[in-house]
Design a protein around this nucleic acid. Structure first.
Lengths: 288, 288
DNA sequence: CCGAATTGGAGAAAAATTTCATAATATGCA
DNA sequence: TGCATATTATGAAATTTTTCTCCAATTCGG
């Protein structure tokens, strides 16, 4: 499959010239809208020359402007679904309306999260996980289910993972953490004192600590060696509809990414474990 | 949504001139291939003049040849780019690649799920939940975290919900279910015997039973009054990378949709409960 | 053979690309 | 640091390619 423009930009951004980055930025911000402009109009819009745009398209590996426009057009549909987001859900909405808006919200939240990923951070977390003897996930309230999901994934892959949902146990586990541990604290708002405190303790004990939060300025983020950011709407930090539904899927997205990273960097150890697990489960279910 | 070219051709075919029909026929026969040719090349290919092609595009309602090419490009791959995923993640991929593919995969899985929603089913489930005294979620393995998430949401909203992750407890709970209960069974493959069996028992006891699964032909689906479908890739039902990552987010999506439906149809009761919960949590965190 | 409809050719217009001169920036050296 | 020089980035203009428009030639039905 042909590479999408977002990926191309991400890969090449460092090598782009200043004026070319203008093009890249514009395209990233308007990824969902079909580009109807001619190269001349486009150049005027961005106040740069047509030559720059032409060079840019080549730099990204397209055959030219027309080629890029075409490629863009064929991408546009999939991403369009995510665009219409600050879609507030109203109580007059039908279930159909809600399903569309919810899809848009969740999709674009993940999208934004992806856009802001710091891959060095992710990589270092993956490395930590691979080097650790035990992996611990900590979260309270809504984050619990994400921790559970993470544990389930890693366990299946043969990596010792546990999840702890109450402040007391979190303290206990943190207190016994070592350099051999990687401890994740998951908190959307980042204000969960229990988790922040546990991370601090674990860190003092030499464990590698990782936060997954939408607020990098929060207690939980500051308590961690590495803080991974998840998207949050600009609108209030109040659980408007009972919870940060989008926040949850962003956390899951990050966890999956780390999981897949671990999977692929384990030199076959993990896929092997997966195979063993799958076989075992199969015979377990067949016996009954 | 913009009209597709196939439809336009169908509508206008009678009014097209002979040479224009050549264009139409060609386009119909090559619908899936992205048209890369310039109008000149295209004219040579068909042995007709450029003017004819230009007129043709207008006849179909496009602004011109370029416009048609663009429109064609966005039709060609409705969302294929993203559909076929984790199966397609290769171990040579960088974290950046993986993050894009994962996003695409999760996004289009939700998208497909949304497309296939039967709103009458969802509505009837929402009604059941509102009418029930207790809500039960059952799942094993990877579905556990989804059940936990569901319980957390509903509890916050003042709705009595519980989650059960082992076959034994599931049987016990199913055995004591009544007409006042709504019982959810969550299973991606739908083959989880424990859950299917529990649903059957609960149903026999008069409870309303709901399945969330990607296989409507499965034991779990058949054991339920209402089966809600989640998307699954066409590729094998084997946990290639340890689990059905996309399946999980689809399940969550469905749960969220039901939750929001309940929220908005509760005549203010639920939002009120949410407010109380939020206040309580706030003072809980402030006290410490 | 006439006249309306259809078609293509030729050139105009628009769009995209390439070239090249200039501006901006970095580098080396005293 | 200041200055000269090399390197790189950029846009204006020229060139090429693509598309559109107009109109004359052709076809076809009567």
């Amino acid at each position: 499959m042909e590479k999408g423009i977002a990926l191309r930009i991400q890969e090449k951004y460092g090598q782009l010239r200043k004026s070319e980055r203008l093009v890249a930025d514009y395209l990233r911000d308007h990824a969902s809208v079909r580009l109807e402009m001619s190269i001349t109009e486009f150049a005027n819009t961005l106040n740069i020359s047509e030559a720059t745009i032409s060079r840019f398209t080549r730099a990204l590996g397209y055959k030219g402007f027309a080629d890029m426009k075409l490629a863009l057009a064929s991408e546009s549909t999939p991403s369009q679904q995510f665009v219409n987001l600050p879609a507030e859900i109203k109580d007059t909405d039908t279930l159909t309306d809600i399903s569309f808006k919810l899809l848009g919200s969740l999709g674009s939240a993940m999208n934004e999260t992806q856009k802001h990923i710091d891959y060095e951070d992710i990589q270092s977390v993956v490395t930590s996980v691979l080097a650790s003897r035990q992996i611990v996930f900590m979260g309270v309230g809504g984050a619990v289910s994400v921790c559970e999901e993470a544990v389930h994934l890693f366990l299946k892959a043969g990596i010792q993972a546990t999840s702890h949902r109450d402040g007391y146990t979190q303290q206990v586990v943190a207190a016994t953490a070592t350099e051999q541990s990687t401890v994740f604290g998951i908190s959307h708002t980042g204000t969960t004192e229990d988790v922040a405190s546990a991370l601090n303790v674990a860190r003092r004990n030499g464990a590698r600590t990782v936060a997954v939060t939408s607020n990098l300025d929060s207690a939980v983020a500051k308590a961690a060696d590495t803080a991974i950011w998840t998207w949050t709407p600009n609108t209030p930090q109040i659980p408007l509809y009972g919870d940060f539904l989008e926040g949850r899927v962003c956390q899951i997205y990050i966890i999956y990414l780390i999981y897949l990273g671990v999977l692929f960097q384990s030199n076959g150890k993990v896929p092997e474990a997966l195979g063993v697990t799958a076989d075992t489960l199969k015979s377990y279910y067949q016996k009954r």
